[in-house]
Design a protein around this nucleic acid. Structure first.
Length: 422
DNA sequence: TCTGGGGTCCTAGGACCC
DNA sequence: TCTGGGGTCCTAGGACCC
């Protein structure tokens, strides 16, 4: 048995833990650069605000209903997420952190300690609420795909009160619920495949569950076939407790304002690279290639458009920021064209491998000293804040920096922002 | 004025090998 | 009349997830 624990309206709920005034009001949290709504309170959903709706299209609605729109505060959400995951591990050692706001728990062996699975689910729900202030829902079932559906029911159907054990339902009840859910609700069925399935008259979760697996495989491939098997109760996806190291690391941002000068673009690319390289060193990897890309604002259809990217292979795998920045800026020079307004840039560190298995080249430069320098820079930045030590090429003014005009304080990660109890 | 960011997996097709 | 068979590796593109 798997349980899926998923926080409700996670970003909004994090904000509410520290700001009581947000309770009961429509609240949305915006994507980077204050662009789109990426989290919505139930009140905001009730007003019809869609996931990903651009902020400018909501201006009227926001004024009309006094909706609170906040910039995203990932320092806060990441820390709250860690608290929830730590708490879940007290229930079971087998926890897969699937995303910032949800985790799968393997329940095997736990059933004996609890009167019923649903009591365990309720306890998880209560304890997370009490210890972190965050509301969660729990779905339980014999496969991960079914646990996802159980969680969906726990959230949407009030009769479950936040906890749904699919295996406790009668076959008739289960069937009725599955018939009421659109096939697009299934984990692994996105927009394109949902449309394709509808064309085949596979409309509900129940329809997909009863579909011919061979036909599904021939039309959609092995991934969708597994999904159907999982819906039938046959586990195809295991719990993944160990997160494998990332195979690539991306760092990119939209600019807060349009950028047309090469110098500004260079600063941005160098800054993004430093962040990506720091992440790469944190997972003890090195990379063999750096990809740089830049693009204009594709939404301004009347502006001249240009987007390009280039991959720069490295002669020797490295995690040294100085070498990586040099490669990225060399790439940028090759793709930069003057006369355009750029809106976004980014870098991708590719072909990652474990640093411990570095293969030197005959005339290579890698030295222990370089590693020590990078380690030192990382530990200083960790202690004194990001960019306490940086490269000059990353600049200091950052006029292109993304917008975050309504960001809440870092209540749990900055001493100066810790709320006072009076 | 104004539309996010960061990932994974699978497949098809091309290049190449013997 | 008429030109094999079996592989690997890499990449781009398409799908999905949050």
């Amino acid at each position: 048995m798997f349980a899926l624990v998923d926080c409700n309206n996670f970003y909004v709920s994090c904000e509410r833990v520290f700001n009581q005034k947000l309770e009961g009001r429509p609240v949305i949290v915006l994507s980077n650069n204050d662009g789109c709504a990426v989290a919505r309170s139930n009140e905001a959903k009730a007003l019809g605000i869609k996931m990903g709706a651009p902020l400018f299209s909501l201006k009227e609605l926001i004024k009309q209903h006094s909706i609170v729109a906040l910039s995203s505060n990932y320092a806060l959400y990441g820390d709250m997420s860690n608290r929830v995951m730590t708490l879940l591990r007290e229930f079971s050692p087998s926890v897969e952190v699937y995303s910032i706001d949800e985790a799968f728990i393997q329940m095997n062996g736990l059933a004996g300690q609890w009167e019923s699975l649903s009591l365990l689910g309720k306890t998880i729900r209560q304890r997370v609420k009490m210890w972190t202030g965050l509301p969660v829902c729990v779905g339980m079932a014999p496969t991960k795909t079914l646990a996802k559906i159980a969680n969906h029911l726990a959230k949407k159907r009030s009769e479950f009160q936040g906890v749904c054990d699919l295996s406790a339902l009668s076959e008739a009840e289960r069937c009725a619920y599955f018939c009421s859910l659109d096939v697009g609700e299934v984990w692994g069925v996105g927009r394109r495949i949902a449309q394709h399935l509808h064309n085949m008259r596979i409309d509900t979760v129940e329809d997909l569950r009863n579909a011919n697996t061979q036909l599904i495989r021939s039309r959609f491939g092995v991934v969708m076939e597994r999904t159907v098997c999982e819906l039938q109760g046959m586990p195809c996806l295991a719990l993944e407790e160990m997160t494998p190291p990332k195979q690539q690391i991306i760092s990119s941002r939209s600019f807060g304002s349009m950028v047309c000068s090469y110098d500004e673009l260079r600063e941005a690319v160098a800054s993004y690279l430093l962040r990506a390289a720091e992440k790469m060193r944190a997972q003890e990897s090195i990379c063999c290639a750096v990809h740089v890309f830049i693009e204009t604002n594709r939404f301004r259809v009347n502006d001249p458009q240009y987007a390009n990217g280039v991959t720069i292979p490295l002669t020797e795998a490295t995690a040294d920021s100085r070498r990586l920045v040099a490669a990225a800026l060399y790439g940028l020079k090759r793709i930069f064209k003057a006369g355009y307004y750029y809106k976004r840039a980014g870098v991708i560190l590719m072909q990652l491998s474990p640093a411990a298995m570095r293969q030197s080249t005959l005339f290579g430069h890698a030295s222990i000293q370089d590693d020590v320098i990078m380690q030192t820079v990382d530990s200083i930045n960790k202690r004194f804040g990001r960019s306490a030590i940086t490269l000059a090429s990353a600049g200091v003014h950052h006029g292109w920096h993304m917008l975050a005009e309504r960001r809440s304080p870092c209540y749990t990660t900055q001493w100066d922002d810790v709320p006072a109890a009076r």
